[in-house]
Amino acid sequence: MSQAVSAERESRQPRTKIGRKLGRASRAGFALLVGLLFLFPLYVAWVTSLDTAAHVFTVPPHLIPDFDFNAYRRVWHMARWLMYLGNTVFITAVTLAIALSSSVLSAYALSFFHFKGRNTVFMSVLIVLMIPAEALLIPNYVILQAFHLLNTYWAQILPYGASVFGVFLLRQFFLSLPDSYRDAAKLDGAGHLRFLWSIALPVAKPALFTVGLYIFIGCWNSFQWPLIVSTSHSVQPVEVAVSRLMMAHSVDWRRLSAAGIMTTLPLVMAFFILQRHIVRGIRRGEGLQE
């Protein structure tokens, strides 16, 4: 609450110049503190991963990095990280490709084709949003078992092959396209696929990015479902491999931290490169979920 106090103090604009300056400085100070608090846990893991053996178990904790890369060298040989990382990349990429194309096609059909039962189809897809994922956990396991798909990549991809959010958001975008676009394309002899590819999709780029972002974060960071359906190491994503390492080596903090940093780093880098788009993407997603 103290942050709110300072924000309000700032906006009240004290009469004196010094008072105003002080208000602005205290607000900036609070903001900096909050920002550092959010960064701190990552910093602690990073420092621990670079500690020398003598600096791990110390009171008070040692918070200056030693730049000793031994923990990384050792944790690298403890598991086939490239394979696990490859699994995560593969599963995320294929899920993205399938879910994006299925939702683009459906959204297109639901906005540019005219057929009986169009609204019924749309509603029956939207109803999916009302069904909590918990209800599907056990029966989906049973279904995948019946298809002999447990312990395959497909077990982690197919249940996420449709994106209701994607269908919904893309449909909104397609419906906002002026009719004249489609009319003009038709006169020029462009079929539906051509129109979709060269006009509708480029216009819907922001929506595609938003949908892709949500699918990407959900898929890359998913844990519970891969934990359940993949017991064989060769198809496990990196998160499941890290959790196994955690359960087995719960006292080797340097190596665990190194593993944590190693698997977090790609996402952090991607985040810093794309952050502006990500913030816009999150906002756009929320506006339309309401």
């Binding site: 593993a259 944590g260 985040f271």
Partner: peptide, 28 residues
Amino acid sequence: IRTLVLLPYITPVIATSIGWLWMFNPQY
């Protein structure tokens, strides 16, 4: 600051809970 506040949201839960487990350690 806004970037820093959003940063944890995109990190994988299992990987970042390692650092927290260590921060929660009663002794060290």
